[in-house]
């Protein structure tokens, strides 16, 4: 069985936010909702400083902290490892949002227009966006990155992977040791975020230096 995972090369990433917007445009996430983010981290003291852009998204953990806490069973793990929220089951209790160590989940009470902040779409495109968002995610529920499962069905890569101007993202099957993703993890000593929590994330990072 395939186990989807993503490898993000921090040596290639420049923190341009391309992934953030690619995700936004793919999923029409409303204002203040970011399924993909780029975090700005900084360490050290002048003049020895290390600023590191860190792209994050749902880590699609093998042991997801969000799944067990869900009282409704809305958060599920597919066979291919993708962690999804079933918007028909979610009640919006947000236990998962609090339990996720990666800040990957967003509760969305209602759709809002980007220009007006209101429920009424301000353009034809906004109408399209609203319709699509409500059909795929609905109101009053928790939403998150789904590894673009709708694109995977069409044999396309996730939108953030496709867009990345630095080509810093490699999507693939982590269970296949021959996949480009597995190969990179091994060759470049990929690491994961907050491994100590036992979540066993499927998003790997290749060190910048």
């Amino acid at each position: 069985m395939v186990r989807y995972g993503l490898v993000i090369d921090l040596k290639r990433c420049t923190g341009c936010f391309g992934c953030v917007i690619a995700c936004k445009a793919e999923h029409q996430t409303p204002p203040k909702v970011f399924w993909a983010k780029v975090l700005r981290s900084e360490s050290g003291k002048y003049p020895v400083v290390n600023r590191q852009p860190l792209p994050v998204l749902c880590m699609h953990c093998k042991e997801p902290a969000c799944k067990d806490v869900c009282p409704t069973g809305a958060t599920k793990q597919r066979e291919d490892g993708i962690v999804v929220v079933d918007n028909k089951l979610c009640v919006g209790c947000r236990y998962c949002v609090v339990a996720c160590p990666y800040g990957a989940r967003y509760f969305v009470e209602k759709w809002k227009d980007y220009f007006t902040g209101k429920d009424q779409p301000s353009s034809k495109y906004a109408e399209y966006a609203k319709k699509k968002w409500l059909a795929e995610n609905d109101r009053g529920v928790v939403t998150k990155c789904n590894f673009c499962s709708e694109r995977l069905e069409k044999d396309l890569k996730p939108a953030c992977v496709e867009a990345c101007p630095a080509e810093a993202r490699t999507f693939g099957d982590l269970d296949d040791p021959e996949s480009e993703a597995s190969r990179l993890i091994k060759k470049r000593r990929g690491f994961r975020l907050k491994e100590e929590l036992g979540t066993d994330p499927c998003v790997y990072y290749l060190p910048s230096r």
């Binding site: 009282p71 409704t72 069973g73 809305a74 089951l89 979610c90 009640v91 919006g92 209790c93 947000r94 509760f107 009470e109 109101r139 009053g140 529920v141 928790v142």
Partner: peptide, 11 residues
């Protein structure tokens, strides 16, 4: 509090 109160039974 709930986002979808009508589905409370799912809790």
């Amino acid at each position: 509090y709930l986002g979808r109160p009508t589905r409370f039974f799912r809790l």
